[in-house]
Amino acid sequence: MKEACGCPGSKMQDFAEEQKGAKDESGSRSSQLRQWPIQLHLVSPEAPYFQKADVVISADCVAYAAGDFHKDYLKGKSLVIACPKLDEDQDTYVEKITSLIDAAKVNTITVLTMEVPCCAGLVNLTTKALHAAKRKVPVKSIVIGIRGGGVLSEDWIS
């Protein structure tokens, strides 16, 4: 039998029961997305929507975990998404984030990650870019819980 994976990032968890109840299905929200593309390999730091913007760098999974991703994190922000565990060529990610800081002169960066340890790689990539950049910019790290999508920590890291 194949040994179960011990990586918290891949560990199987079922919490369907916890998510029952307290659901308001009425009304609808409009999307707060104001740009395309969003994947970090696909975006161009020169795009007008990044200039002096408040940028959210979100791990792919966050949008599915946080129930109100659009309202709570995306509204008024520009977005890039990436997966620090599976995506290839992450040096390009560092270069792109460096360009967002130096060329697009972004106002702030908010890094959204899941609580699993490997997701912290996205914070590391951003920190590397910050060190490589000539400008300094405030960076906030928000960690989202797997169960319920709540905020587990919210800290300014630079």
Binding site: C5, G6, C7, S10, K11, K85
Partner: peptide, 9 residues
């Protein structure tokens, strides 16, 4: 717990 990870990248 990364040892048995199927991805391992």
């Amino acid at each position: 717990g990364c040892v048995p990870c199927a991805v391992g990248t």
